[in-house]
Amino acid sequence: MLSKPGFGDRELADSFYQALFNRFYDSFDSPIQTLLIDCQFGLAPSPTGVQTFFILAPNMAIAEELTQRIEIIIKRTSDLMAGIAQTGICVAPQKGSDPESSPGRSNAPAQYMLAKIFPHPSTSRCNVD
């Protein structure tokens, strides 16, 4: 007989993911850790069911810096998280952004997140030269 999921199962899953994300963060040298310190991390399937590791950057500048270091990020993700086939670098809309700096924008919060998805090499072997 299978046990029913309970509050303890949720706590265990949260603890596991927090430890995994901490290990991911700790696996980098100081310059990349500095970029990751204010980021949030998550795992979710894409609309097509591909398991994806998400890094949610606090702003576009950090997202761009992480994108420039995507090869090492993908390597560490692959080493630590078997079964993850792609990594996404995301930026959430800025809350309370200054409408003066963005002509035509209202004070209403943006509704969409920006993301760039990077497939891991093992999922794109057909592109090998």
Rank of each mutant, 00 (worst) to 15 (best):
L2Q: 12
G6S: 14
F7I: 08
G8N: 15
D14L: 10
S15I: 00
S15L: 11
S15D: 13
F16R: 15
Q18W: 08
L20M: 11
F21A: 01
F21H: 07
N22G: 00
N22F: 00
R23F: 01
D26W: 05
D26E: 15
D26I: 02
S30E: 15
P31R: 05
I37G: 04
Q40G: 13
F41W: 09
G42P: 02
P45A: 07
P47R: 13
I55P: 04
L56D: 11
A57S: 15
M60I: 12
A61W: 00
I62E: 06
A63D: 02
T67D: 12
Q68E: 10
R69C: 03
I70S: 05
E71G: 03
I73F: 03
I74N: 09
T77L: 04
S78V: 13
D79Y: 08
A85P: 01
A85C: 15
S97G: 07
D98N: 15
E100S: 14
G104T: 01
S106G: 15
N107Q: 14
P109A: 11
A110P: 02
L114K: 09
A115H: 13
P119S: 07
H120D: 05
S122L: 13
S124V: 10
S124F: 00
N127G: 01
N127S: 10
D129V: 03
